[in-house]
């Protein structure tokens, strides 16, 4: 028996390849800043601190929700409970406002705990009982929405002054706190993705079988991803309360589809294994900024959805195109 092979040494790479750039958060960051330029041109007042701050505050809940969803999607899962957890966290904060910074922290701890609890249920049912993620998280979403309605029948309640005014303001009058939170999450992700847990997440999403044979605890990795997601959804509900200064038992509903849209726009693959939280944060921010830009250019709000959807398709096509082009080059 005989066979033959050519050896092809792989040289150390210095610059990231085109594919690596296309798969990073870079494209969506570029789109985001491009959109700011457009926005600034058509609406110069948009660049005032007040409107920047307002936009950041508007965007932060969706950014947090999308960040949470990314943890689950990266490992190849699916989580619908986002809408339920945000609603529940929103009303809990609104019926139990606690004053002062410490009260704000206490409120945050409460809703993050709720998120973790829901995440633990999701994670246990999906990872260990091996129930389909869509069914399991749909159930927890409905439960959370029901619980939110039990706590608060109709929009109402109020939040502490600390949350309503100080959390939505700017440090030293120039640095929007919402922006600081977003940057903090990006830094967190930059570290987290290189931890063993972060790598496991990507490995499980890429190839569950190979991950298991590499010694990764697949079930625990899945479980953990739902915990992270739940915590972020709780925080999203908290920031939604701060931004709207009120509780709404249906407040989380719009987030269900928008958070998936933000993740897709950021370029994270729904099949798992490729993408990241930073990309999703920018995806969410871009989605919100786009609404403003469309309004500023004078597009009727009825068309906003149409344009948003079209841009999403373009973004997904773009990443598919880059992938195809780089693959083809490789095969040459």
């Amino acid at each position: 028996m005989a066979s033959i092979e050519i050896t092809s040494p792989h040289r150390p790479r210095t610059l990231p390849s085109l594919r690596q750039i296309a798969e990073s958060a870079f494209p969506i960051i570029a789109i985001y800043f491009l959109m700011w330029v457009v926005y600034g041109l058509v609406e110069p007042s948009a660049l005032s601190l007040y409107s920047i701050e307002a936009l950041f505050n508007n965007s932060l809940p969706l950014m947090l929700a999308a960040a949470g969803a990314t943890f689950v999607i990266l490992q190849g899962g699916f989580d619908l409970s986002v809408a339920g957890v945000i609603s529940l966290a929103n009303v809990v904060v609104a019926v139990m406002p606690m004053e002062g910074p410490l009260g704000g922290v206490a409120n945050l701890a409460m809703v993050v705990a709720i998120g973790l609890l829901v995440g633990a249920v999701n994670g246990f049912v999906v990872a260990y009982l091996r129930i389909q993620a869509i069914a399991a998280t749909l159930a927890t979403m409905i439960m959370c929405k029901g619980a939110a309605l039990l706590i608060l029948k109709a929009p109402g309640g109020f939040v502490s002054d600390f949350m309503a005014y100080e959390l939505t303001a700017s440090f030293f009058g120039i640095v929007p706190i919402a922006g600081v939170i977003a940057v903090a999450i990006m830094l967190f992700w930059a570290v987290f993705r290189s931890t063993n847990t972060g790598r496991s997440l990507i490995a499980v999403g890429q190839d569950e079988n190979a991950a298991a044979l590499s010694g990764i605890d697949v079930a625990r990795t899945r479980f953990t991803s739902f915990l992270w997601a739940g915590a972020f959804y709780g925080a999203a509900g908290y920031m939604l309360a701060a931004q709207t200064s009120t509780g709404n038992p249906n407040g989380g509903d719009p987030f269900l589809l928008l958070s998936f849209a933000a993740v897709a726009l950021g370029g994270t693959a729904f099949g798992g294994g490729r993408g990241g939280v930073t990309a999703s944060l920018f995806g969410a921010a871009t989605l919100m900024l786009m609404q403003k830009v469309l309004f500023a250019v004078g597009v009727s709000s009825f068309y906003t959805g149409v344009v948003q959807g079209a841009i999403m398709i373009l973004a997904v096509l773009f990443s598919a195109f880059v992938l195809a082009v780089t693959r083809q080059r490789k095969s040459r």
Binding site: A203, Q206, G273, R274
Partner: peptide
């Protein structure tokens, strides 16, 4: 059936599941 993760580096794959020696802070 080769148990390597395609989009990680050779080095990370060799050291999985504990590519980083430390648990909470990445190496």
């Amino acid at each position: 059936e080769l148990s390597l993760i395609p989009n990680l580096t050779v080095g990370e794959n060799l050291l999985l599941p504990r590519a980083s020696k430390t648990a909470f802070w990445p190496e």
